[in-house]
């Protein structure tokens, strides 16, 4: 059986909120290392990969591998019933028909309990190769969100160019063009504002802004976001969570001329 207790419902609320417009029905794969989810969007252009390690829960118990097929719209409805600071416990039997969610207020004696019916989801699982990326950029997640939103007003695509000079986000559309360039930057007082660029060779790739703006819904989960790029491979956008848990998005590039 599965029993996983989260100190704050807010974490799961934010994760589901960040991915529910990209993917609809997903398997939450539970085993003794934690709860994982991998799902592609309908167009097979973007992929969500979530890992909530067992250390992110206290306690965490999962005796055998269980796949919980959950519709994220249903999960959102139930998670709205939890206060952000509620303690959340997920429970399921070994061959479950439902997943049980319990919300407890740490401050009062309220205890709410909901069951969500599970679905059989036949999901394609993609093997993501270990990649040594040519460029890794860590930057404030709010800054990345603003850049994506700003450029989307002009164009549907953005080119991301990373050189020794810095990283340049550029677009051009019907009304004109625009770009934002960031250089490495260290803020000792506020390290969450740092921009760190780690480059082994220059990269230039083009991506659809629609998906990037969608990924940025995860900005509330982490002050910093990490972008990993290599020429001609999908972009990795990573929001690191506590205890080595993470929410990652992969986006296939636009290619050819």
């Amino acid at each position: 059986m599965l029993e996983a207790r989260l100190e704050q419902a807010n974490l799961l609320k934010k994760v589901v909120d960040a991915i529910k417009d990209l993917v609809q029905d997903c398997n939450f794969d539970c085993n003794d290392s934690g709860i994982a989810l991998q799902a592609m969007d309908n167009s097979h252009v973007a992929l969500v990969s979530m890992m909530l390690k067992s250390e992110s829960f206290s306690p965490f118990r999962c005796d055998r591998n269980i796949a919980l097929g959950i519709n994220l719209t249903s999960l959102t409805k139930v998670l709205r019933c939890a206060a952000n600071e509620d303690i959340l416990t997920l429970k399921a039997e070994d061959a479950p028909d439902v997943v049980n969610l319990v919300f407890e207020s740490a401050e009062s004696d309220r205890l709410s309990e909901y069951d969500i019916k599970l679905m059989d989801i036949d999901q394609e699982h993609l093997g993501i190769p270990e990649t040594e990326y040519a460029a890794t950029i860590s930057m404030p997640s709010a800054e990345f969100q603003k850049i994506c939103r700003d450029l989307m007003a002009l164009s549907e695509s953005v080119s991301i160019e990373c050189t020794k000079e810095g990283v340049k986000f550029a677009c051009s559309g019907d009304i004109g063009s625009g770009s934002v360039t960031l250089r490495s930057h260290t803020n000792v007082e506020k390290p969450q504002l740092n921009v760190e660029i780690d480059l082994s060779e220059p990269v230039a790739l083009t991506f659809s802004l629609k998906y990037l703006v969608n990924f940025c819904k995860a900005s509330g989960l982490s002050e910093q976001v990490r972008l990993c790029l290599s020429n001609e491979v999908p972009l990795l956008v990573e929001y690191a969570l506590s205890n080595n848990s993470y929410l990652r998005f992969y986006l296939a590039p636009k290619i050819g001329d």
Binding site: S43, L47, E124, G127, Y250, A252, G256, D257
Partner: peptide, 14 residues
């Protein structure tokens, strides 16, 4: 113009 690739081009199915 560039065209949108899909992930299947890069990631194999398991």
């Amino acid at each position: 113009p560039k065209s949108q690739a899909t992930l299947g081009k890069f990631f194999g199915t398991q």
